[in-house]
Design a protein around this nucleic acid. Structure first.
Lengths: 178, 178
DNA sequence: GGCGACATGTAACCAGTTACATGATTGA
DNA sequence: TCAATCATGTAACTGGTTACATGTCGCC
């Protein structure tokens, strides 16, 4: 079974392909989630691996004399991508949501009440502007997103709304401690 | 600045301390998020590192003749933990939520409409039972959780509610495609 | 003429996992 | 007595990042 970044990269080539490895990197870099850096050191060997497995294939394409390799997903690759997507209901995929902000709330006991209130307020502000950013992502690119792309972006918005709501609870709980 | 797992481990020692490295591992292993495995190979060297930095200190304690090292957070460690918690409003911490389920929704185009509906339904079921699990976490341990611990667990529940709501949207959108 | 984007790659490093090794204690 | 839990550790591996190297093209 493909690992996370492999499935993601394969999916990107599928949706944006034929495209270059460089494109895959840019999409990963500019994605609102900062989880993957899309570093050259991971992407190029990874795509070589997928090519060796015949999940993607490359076509040499000297665009403006500048050599580049246009990648696209093979029939085998499509099958692998399908299997990877279907694996999304597995327990370890379902359980894998971790939020460093929430983690820090757990350990706010280490702070003084005053510090707690201050940090929580800062987090709330930051989460709110991040939420707006994820909303703009949909509005701004409404037309260039596929229906499922829009749906995925909506998922990000909903998650961020939940994070904001959570942090509001935290702020409230810290204001009048029971 | 402490990295994620370091801050987390330090926080665990702070909240559960004095405790053994073994305890830290168990808490990480049994946490509902499967993000950290709490492998011996990471935890022991990590805690040695924190001890070398004088953020935690160990007291030898031959409990039942069984040798064990009880760890607790030093004054310096408390300061480091505070700084780490306060760093939770930084952009890269705020942005670091990634959900492999949502990622897979992005690439459902690769499936046939029938497969799409089926996978989405599976994901919804899995997410719903995971939500119930996170709810039980609060109910079951209501008394043994600190106020902020309860709040953190609430955050997990809220996130999981958002994931379920999102997946319901996906299922609905796949039923009658616009 | 130089800067930024396009494009591809590699080597050194880092952090976490797997799998193993060891040994004491507790309870069925 | 035998398995499970408590307890500590190490070596090999893996998968990603950082930082570097190289070269073209388009634009100011």
């Amino acid at each position: 079974m493909l690992k996370e970044l492999e499935g993601l990269a394969l999916g990107i080539v599928f949706k944006s392909g034929p495209c270059t490895a460089y494109t895959v990197r840019q999409l990963l870099k500019n994605s609102p989630s900062s989880h993957w850096r899309g570093s050259a050191g991971s992407i190029y060997p990874l795509l070589e691996r997928l090519e060796a497995l015949a999940l993607i294939e490359a076509r040499e394409d000297p665009h403006d004399g500048r050599a580049r390799r246009l990648l696209s997903v093979t029939k085998e690759g499509r099958k692998a991508l399908k299997a990877w997507v279907k694996g999304g209901a597995e327990p370890d995929i379902i359980a894998q949501v971790f939020d460093p902000v929430r983690t820090r709330v757990f350990f706010m006991d280490a702070l003084t009440p005053k510090e707690r209130a201050r940090v929580a307020a800062n987090m709330l502000t930051a989460l709110e502007s991040f939420l707006m950013l994820s909303r703009d992502q949909i509005d701004g690119r409404r037309n260039e997103l596929s229906p499922l792309g829009r749906l995925g972006a909506l998922g990000a918005v909903m998650t961020n709304e939940a994070r904001v709501a959570f942090m509001k609870e935290v702020v409230a709980a810290l204001q009048d401690p029971d």
